Amino acid sequence: MITIPYPKGHKIKVRNKIVESAAQAFRASGIQDVSVPFIMKGAGLTHGGFYAHFDNKEQLVAEACRYAISDTIALLRKVADQEKQNPKINTVIDYYLSPYHRDNTEMGCIIPALSGEISRCSEEVRQVFTSELERMVSFISTLAEVDTSKGSALFSTMVGSLVLARSVNHSELSDNLLSAGKKYAKELAMT
C-alpha cells in the first residue's frame, strides 16, 4: 500500500482549524462547558487527533485567546477604517456595544466571554490572556488618542456594558445598558 504524504503546511492548517473552532466555542460557551471532542467536531475532525497538535486543553485555550484577540482587533480596525467623519473610536464603541455584537457571542470579543473564568485557569493561560488584554487596551488607547490609563477605563466600560447587556433576560434593559455604555464610553474617550 502506498501512503501519500500530506501536502506541505497541512499540519499548520489543521491546527489553525482547531484553534478557530475553539475560539468560536469558548466565545459562545466559555471554557469549562466546552469539551475537546466538541472543539474537534467543530473543526471537522475526530477528537483522537487533538494530541498531535496540543499538549492539553490549557494550551489550546491560550492559543484560542491569542487568535480571538487578533481577530477582534482586525475587525475593529476594519470598522474604524470605514469611518471618514466621526472620531474612529466612536465607530468602534458603536460596533462593540451594538445588539449585533451582544447577540453573536461566538464571533465577538473573547474578553467579556472569558473574563470570569480566566482567574481559575493555569498561570500560562492567565499570562496569555493578560498580554492579549494589554494589546487590546493599547489598540483602544491608540485609536482614542488617550493614555493607557484612560484607555483601560474606556475598554473596561465597554466590556462591562457588554457583559451586563448579555447577562439580563429583559431585552429593553439590555438595550438600555448598551446605550448607556456607548454614551459614557464616548464621553470618556473625549475628555
Rank of each mutant, 00 (worst) to 15 (best):
T3N: 09
A80R: 13
K183Y: 14
S171Y: 12
K186N: 11
E117D: 04
A113P: 01
V92P: 08
L188R: 11
M190A: 15
N56H: 09
G116L: 09
L75H: 14
A64L: 07
I110K: 02
S152F: 07
Q32M: 05
A43K: 03
I111R: 00
V61L: 05
C121G: 02
M107L: 15
H170E: 15
S138N: 09
A43P: 04
R120M: 11
I18V: 04
S179F: 12
M158C: 08
I39G: 03
L76E: 13
A80S: 13
M107W: 13
Y51R: 00
A62R: 06
I89Q: 07
V146K: 07
M190N: 15
I31D: 06
K41E: 15
F26L: 08
P87V: 12
A153C: 11
S115L: 08
L154R: 11
K78E: 15
L178R: 14
R166N: 06
A144C: 09
A165C: 03
Q59V: 12
S179K: 14
L97H: 05
S179G: 10
V61D: 00
E187V: 09
E123C: 03
I2H: 12
N56R: 05
G181D: 08
F50K: 02
F139P: 03
Y6K: 01
T105H: 11
V125A: 02
I39R: 00
V19M: 04
A180N: 11
G30I: 00
G160P: 11
Y95S: 09
D94G: 10
P7H: 08
R166P: 08
K11F: 03
F26N: 00
V34K: 06
L177N: 05
H10P: 04
E63G: 00
H47L: 01
I73W: 01
L76S: 04
P112R: 02
K8Y: 14
S152M: 12
E20A: 15
I140M: 10
G160Y: 13
I69R: 03
K150G: 09
D103M: 06
A43M: 02
Q59S: 14
T105Q: 14
L164Y: 14
P7R: 09
P7T: 03
L114Y: 01
I69H: 07
I118T: 03
E20L: 10
M136H: 01
H53I: 03
R66E: 09
C109T: 04
S161W: 05
N86V: 13
S122Y: 01
L164T: 11
S131I: 03
G49R: 06
T191S: 12
